[in-house]
Amino acid sequence: MKKTKILAATVFAAIIGLITIAADHIDAPAVSGTSADITDFYAFQGEDTNNLVFVANVQGLLSPDATTAASFSENVMVEFNIDTNDDKVEDLVIQAIPRDGKMYFFGPYAPTTTGLNSMINELATKSEVAISSSSAIVANQNGMKFFAGPRDDPFFMDFAQYGEIIGGNASGFNSPGSDTFAGTNVMSIVVEVPKSEIGGSGTINTWVEAKSKQ
């Protein structure tokens, strides 16, 4: 009985996985559709031009119904990486991890180890914001601003037609195109930080990582 249930669940998960891969950004099969599946990353100057804004989105293509039930996994830490000396190795990180309805942030701080495996230094600057539902809850702490929760997916693209082209079923895009991501949501983490804390001036390299607790 139990074995049958597990088998059925596995088959079901495999089918869902296939559908998700077919529709998603197709770039992280191992974690597709989970809150470790990064859909997008943005970095831009804030309304206050002394600040830089980082946006990490996870779990793409959420319908409005699915959004109500969506959550950040407490096993997944989202890490913004900042390289200030152009060696493509992070000099600073900002880590975001949810606990009991809040998103906690650590940093920016210099991690003791870089690369694929990370720990959280609880002595680093610590901030928190309540995870929003539909209306945005914003926290101002330690000179930074924080948000975590569902948002309209800011990404726009005729991804479906791109798939047709790559699949050999179409010779080009349509005009007008159709935004595959229209009407869908993502789970979003937004941090606004003073430029003075992430290098001050010049050019930085930055990327975002999703890391799961082992």
């Binding site: 804030g46 309304e47 804004v53 946006v55 319908s63 409005p64 959004t67 539909s134 209306s135 945005a136 914003v138 601003k145 948000f147 929760g149 569902p150 948002r151 309209d152 800011p154 990404f155 726009f156 693209m157 005729d158 037609q161 791109y162 895009f173 349509n174 005009s175 007008p176 195109g177 159709s178 935004d179 991501f181 229209a182 009407g183 869908t184 949501n185 979003s188 937004v190 606004e192």
Partner: peptide, 22 residues
């Protein structure tokens, strides 16, 4: 050109910048 040039919702000039969910 995929001929999709803009998002389906307006962005905000203020934090958190992204539009409210559907």
């Amino acid at each position: 050109n995929d001929n999709v040039d803009a998002n389906d919702k307006e962005f905000s000039d203020s934090f958190p910048y992204l539009a409210s969910p559907w």
